[in-house]
Write a protein that binds this DNA or RNA. Structure first.
Lengths: 272, 272
DNA sequence: CGTGCTTTTGAAAATCATCAAGTATAGTGG
DNA sequence: CCACTATACTTGATGATTTTCAAAAGCACG
């Protein structure tokens, strides 16, 4: 595992009412020691939700402007540095999380270290839906990530007051379920080549500053492997072969061009 | 594929208000031609929900006795003979289903016929949660199965009136999600032996008339294979080896004794 | 310009799939 | 009732995709 230097001292950056010592815990990293950063922090503390990137996505969209302060009162925004685990499988599930920035990987482990990444959470992803009192998976930031944390109990009360939110949560869960079934098909029945093609195409719909046809892979090869049920070596080899076959180009390990979209679609669908 | 004899003539056995020609469509198989059976059918038509096996499980448990007639008015009970497909992936999702008896397999197909079974639906399982307007999977009865069908739109209205139902649906979806993640771990990272052990142990919590330690496998080996992402031959061989290793006994192809529970648990958890 | 990590590439090994055939079981028809 | 057929299940031999083991190449960082 990668050892994080000064970032390890970084605790949680907390805004939101009800968190008394929030101001004491801002990041020690250079990017947060500037006055500007602290001002932003304070600003966001005043109305964390109204200015949130995920305001109109996910479950928060179910709350109207006038009720937003109630949501904000429950929300605790946190900076999670890359590599940091913020949900541990098996721990008591005391919080819900909403990813507002960056990417997190969700995974399950076997005792001997085998890992299955069950999904990547990006802006707007809501985490912690499990009915059980313990988390069913772990979550770790892929890159520097912002998440919004809610007390499970207090959010439960809020949901009781806003049925639209429950509806929204059901929609989210239903969509996740469909995605999970698609992933089961991939893991159980697709070849390595088909899996990688499916993955690349899925990345296309993710927001990124790159030009049309270019996709970004913020996660390491190991993560892709653990997501697709393969090994790093197989991922690497498969990408190399896809390039040799002129289906993709590789600008860098993290930036890939989808060169033959139709062929990739066919591959991903299992038609070749 | 297996060709079903007279069962293929069997249409749907429908009770419930709003289905005019229900009485014409009872089963032609011998088990339903008796007077007693038809009487039961009529009885169930009068109060299909109160006497339903799934009355207190699943989403129906969210409805109180006094409101049960409203639910019953929407419910259409159907007999699905073994082998019959009653949900087809990609079709417009006009109905929800609730399995009240028997077992159904849920699956996705690739164009060349590769199949992934994403789950087995038993008594109380609610199907069709997808937000999309089309079904994300197909469903086929494993053995003779009873399902309860609801119009999507009309059930939506009912849910609006009974928030407890929405809550229940969310619970159901959340639990399915947890199960799906567990299955992804199995498909992506477990060996054939571990997968089969996991499957056998999971079958243990299913209701069955068999004695303690005995489990029933109503589905064919092919189905188990498509559920675990393996082939029939591997399933067969793995079961044979588990028997040779004294972890299980096989009373018949469909009845298995878990002989060394602890060892199976270790296997399933990936600790050996 | 090392150092440590990620990625890529190569060769050998292994698990699981495929192909093929035999056994068992259930329903069918004489 | 018994052969007959179809299907499911099991077992064996072979093969291929993917993993494992090993090492080189590429990159970021101090």
């Amino acid at each position: 595992m990668k050892i994080w230097g000064y970032r390890d001292f970084v605790a949680l950056r907390c805004y939101g009412a009800g968190v008394s010592n929030a101001d004491q815990k801002y990041t020690r990293g250079p990017e947060m020691t500037t006055l500007r950063a602290r001002q932003q922090s304070v600003l966001r503390g005043a109305e964390p939700c109204a200015s949130c990137g995920a305001r109109y996505s996910s479950v928060c969209a179910a709350i109207e402007e006038k009720d937003l302060d109630r949501l904000a009162a429950l929300a605790v925004s946190m900076s999670v540095p890359a590599g940091r685990t913020f949900i541990t499988e098996g721990d008591p599930a005391e919080h819900f999380f909403n990813v507002t920035n960056g990417t997190a990987k969700l995974f399950k482990l076997l005792p001997d270290g085998r890992r299955q990444i069950t999904g990547f959470a990006t802006m707007g992803t809501f985490l912690g839906l499990a009915v059980s009192s313990n988390y069913a998976f772990s979550a770790e930031a892929v890159d520097d990530t912002q998440v919004c944390r809610f007390s499970r109990i207090r959010l439960r009360h809020l949901i009781d007051d806003f049925p639209a939110m429950e509806r929204r949560l059901l929609d989210v869960a239903s969509n996740e379920l469909v995605a999970a079934q698609e992933q089961m098909l991939l893991l159980g029945r697709k070849t390595a080549r088909e899996r990688v093609a499916s993955f690349l195409l899925a990345r296309e719909s993710c927001v990124s500053p790159l030009p049309e046809g270019h996709i970004q892979l913020p996660m390491a090869r190991t993560d892709i492997a653990d997501y697709l049920g393969l090994t790093v070596e197989t991922i690497s080899r498969t990408l190399t072969r896809l390039r040799a076959d002129r289906l993709i180009d590789m600008v860098s390990p993290t930036e890939i061009v989808l060169r033959n979209h139709a062929a990739l679609e066919e591959l991903a669908a299992g038609m070749s």
